[in-house]
C-alpha cells in the first residue's frame, strides 16, 4: 500500500517528459515572438534615423517630390521627397485591385454557383498553381511581353504604372479569387435556396443575397490582394522603370517603394543619409502592412456571418 501511495505522489518519467515538452514548445514560440519584435524594432530604428540623425522633416519627406538623397536642394536640405514612390505604390496597388476584383469575383461565382462541378475541377488546380508561380517569373513575362506591348502602343520605354498594374493584376488575381471562393462558400446554402424559392433569379440571388452576405469576407480578400501587391518587390521592379520621378501618366518610368529599395539599398553606405532614407521607405512598407493587417482584422471581426 505504501508503495502505491508513494507512486501516486512522486514525480515520474511522464511528469519529466511533460516539463521537457513544455520547455521545447515554449522556447519555439518565444523565438518567433522575439523575431517579430526584433524585425519591428530594427526596421523602425533604422527607418527613423532619417528624421532623428539626419534631421529631415517628416512632412517634407512624405510630401517632397524630389528624390535625390545625395544632393542638397536650394535651401541646403537633402532632397528626400518620397512622394513619387508613395504615389506610385498606391497607384499600382489600387489599380491592380480595381481591375482584379471583378474578374476574381466572377471566377469565384463561376466556381461556386454557376458551374460548380466543372468550374471547381478545372479552375481550382489552375488557380492554386498560379498562386505558386514565383514573382520573378511574373516579372520576366511582364518584361518580355507586357512592356514591349505597351511600348508598341504608346511609345516611350513601355515601363511604368500601366505595366506594373498589369503584372500585379495577374499576380493578385489568384490570391483574391481563392479567398473569394472561400467567402462565397461560407454563405450557407439555405441563403441561396431561400432566395431561389422566393422566385428570385440566379442573378438576383447572387447580387442581393450572396454578395451581400459575403461582402465582409470579399473585402478582406481584396485587401489581402492589395497587401500582396503593395509589398511585391521584384516583379514590379522589373517593369516599373525605376526612375524616382513623380508619375505624370501611366506609361512613363517611375518607382515604387519596393523597387526603389531593391534597386538602391546595395548601392548606398550604411549610416549615410541616402541609406537611411531607404530604410525610411522600408518603414513605410512595414507600417502599411500593419495597416492592411488591422483592416483585415477589423472587417473580419465585424463581418462574421451570424446564423
Amino acid at each position: 500500500m505504501d508503495d502505491i501511495q508513494h507512486k501516486l505522489t512522486a514525480p515520474s518519467k511522464a511528469s519529466r517528459e511533460d516539463v521537457m515538452g513544455r520547455i521545447i514548445s515554449y522556447t519555439c514560440i518565444a523565438a518567433i515572438i522575439i523575431l517579430v519584435i526584433s524585425i519591428l524594432y530594427f526596421i523602425t530604428s533604422r527607418g527613423v534615423a532619417t528624421f532623428t540623425a539626419n534631421h529631415v522633416n517628416l512632412w517634407q519627406f512624405l510630401s517632397g517630390k524630389e528624390w535625390n538623397p545625395g544632393t542638397l536642394n536650394a535651401s541646403g536640405q537633402p532632397q528626400v521627397g518620397a512622394l513619387p514612390m508613395i504615389v506610385t505604390s498606391f497607384s499600382v496597388t489600387i489599380l491592380a485591385a480595381l481591375v482584379a476584383t471583378p474578374f476574381a469575383i466572377a471566377v469565384a461565382l463561376f466556381m461556386t454557383d454557376i458551374a460548380p462541378k466543372n468550374g471547381a475541377k478545372f479552375l481550382q488546380p489552375v488557380i492554386e498553381l498560379l498562386v505558386g508561380i514565383p514573382s520573378v517569373v511574373y516579372g520576366f513575362i511582364g518584361l518580355t511581353v507586357v512592356v514591349p506591348f505597351i511600348r508598341h502602343l504608346f511609345g516611350g520605354t513601355g515601363s511604368g504604372i500601366l505595366a506594373g498594374t498589369i503584372v500585379l493584376f495577374v499576380m493578385v488575381l489568384p490570391t483574391i479569387t481563392s479567398l473569394a471562393v472561400d467567402a462565397l462558400k461560407a454563405v450557407p446554402t439555405y441563403f441561396r435556396s431561400a432566395s431561389l424559392a422566393l422566385g428570385a433569379t440566379r442573378f438576383q440571388t447572387i447580387y442581393k443575397v450572396l454578395l451581400r452576405a459575403a461582402m465582409p469576407r470579399l473585402l478582406t480578400a481584396v485587401i489581402f490582394g492589395m497587401a500582396r501587391a503593395f509589398g511585391e518587390a521584384l516583379a514590379v521592379q522589373m517593369v516599373i522603370g525605376n526612375a524616382a520621378l513623380m508619375p505624370h501618366n501611366l506609361v512613363t518610368p517611375t518607382s515604387t517603394l519596393t523597387s526603389q529599395l531593391t534597386t538602391n539599398i546595395g548601392n548606398t553606405i550604411m549610416g549615410t543619409l541616402p541609406n537611411n532614407a531607404l530604410w525610411s521607405l522600408a518603414l513605410i512598407l512595414l507600417l502599411m502592412s500593419l495597416v492592411f493587417n488591422l483592416l483585415i482584422r477589423y472587417i473580419g471581426k465585424r463581418g462574421e456571418i451570424k446564423s
Binding site: 523575431l35 517579430v36 524585425i39 526596421i43 509589398g231 519596393t258 529599395l261 522600408a282 493587417n293
Partner: peptide, 14 residues
Amino acid sequence: EVLSSLPSVVVGLF
C-alpha cells in the same frame, strides 16, 4: 500574422 503579412523584401532587408 504580422510576420506573415510582412512583404518579403522587408524580411529580406531585416
